[in-house]
Computed example of a mutant assay.
Amino acid sequence: MYNPQIDTFICVADAGSFNKAAEESYITPTAAIKQINLLEESVGIKLFEQTHRD
């Protein structure tokens, strides 16, 4: 079963940032963050420490 949240998680981990992962996945950074937030809610743990760097 395909899970876009897992796909986004892997892309963010590989890219090192939500912006880069979003660009590579052809989605907005907001969409990438929402996917990770949904995944974090479903597994019950925080997966990434989000910072506001440029």
Rank of each mutant, 00 (worst) to 15 (best):
V43D: 04
N37P: 07
S42T: 15
A22S: 06
Q35I: 10
V43W: 06
K46F: 03
T8V: 06
M1T: 14
Q5V: 11
K34Q: 13
H52F: 13
K20C: 04
N37Y: 05
I6D: 07
I36Q: 02
T28Q: 00
Y2I: 15
M1G: 15
I45R: 03
A15R: 04
E41W: 05
G44E: 03
N37T: 14
L38I: 14
Q35H: 11
I27S: 03
N3P: 00
N37M: 10
C11T: 12
I45Y: 08
T30M: 09
H52M: 13
D54T: 12
A21D: 02
A15C: 14
R53E: 03
T30F: 02
I45P: 03
V12W: 00
Q5E: 12
N3Q: 07
E24S: 15
P4M: 06
T30E: 07
E49C: 01
Q5G: 11
T8C: 11
V43H: 05
A21N: 03
M1L: 12
H52V: 04
I45T: 07
P29D: 05
A15W: 09
A22E: 00
N19M: 10
A15H: 08
G16K: 00
S17R: 02
I36W: 00
N37H: 12
K34A: 15
F18N: 07
T30I: 10
N3K: 04
E24M: 15
A13T: 11
K34S: 15
L38F: 09
A13R: 08
I36T: 05
Y26A: 12
A15S: 14
I36L: 04
F48S: 00
A15P: 04
I36K: 00
P29H: 05
I27V: 12
E23C: 11
S25L: 15
T28A: 00
G16Y: 13
I33C: 10
C11E: 15
E24N: 12
P4R: 05
D54M: 13
A15V: 10
E23V: 02
D14A: 14
E40K: 02
